[in-house]
């Protein structure tokens, strides 16, 4: 993938690091996270690329990606990362940055009426993907 080095928004950078408690600058692109991620095949930016784009200051591309909504925090990446970066927390922070501006992934009333779901699925989904 082509990566454009951008002047990072300091405010956004600090926000991602503050909400997640993780520093993506630690990542050295070994790709362990991507090789273990069961959802990587569906992602437009694979897990290690999330870190790479964040490092290069292209926050917009990550925030607009499908990837952050495909991560359900199974912690496989976090468990295997030799640098101790918990990407599930970084993805959570990126989702929160969107959700806190009321940019829900979907309309909960429409989605909930598509089937009978276990309580745990509905509560978890609404907490992760909507405000």
């Amino acid at each position: 993938m082509e990566v454009e080095i951008k002047e990072p928004s300091v405010e956004l950078r600090d926000k991602i690091i503050e909400i997640s408690g993780e520093d993506y600058h630690r990542c050295y692109q070994c790709g362990e996270c991507t090789s273990g991620c069961p959802a990587a095949g569906e992602m437009d930016i694979v897990p290690n690329q999330v870190n790479m784009l964040l490092q290069s200051g292209d926050f917009e591309r990550v925030l607009e990606s499908k990837t952050i909504w495909l991560c359900v925090a199974c912690f496989q990446c976090a468990t295997r990362c030799p640098r101790g970066v918990d990407l599930s927390k970084i993805n959570e922070a990126l989702r929160q940055i969107k959700i806190r501006k009321n940019m829900d992934l979907f309309n909960i009333w429409e989605v909930a009426s598509t089937g009978e779901f276990p309580a745990v699925a509905l509560v978890a989904s609404f907490r992760k993907f909507t405000a």
């Binding site: 495909l70 359900v72 979907f106 779901f117 745990v120 978890a124």
Partner: peptide, 8 residues
């Protein structure tokens, strides 16, 4: 796939 099952 966990709670992704609701919308995906």
């Amino acid at each position: 796939g966990a709670f992704e099952t609701v919308h995906n």
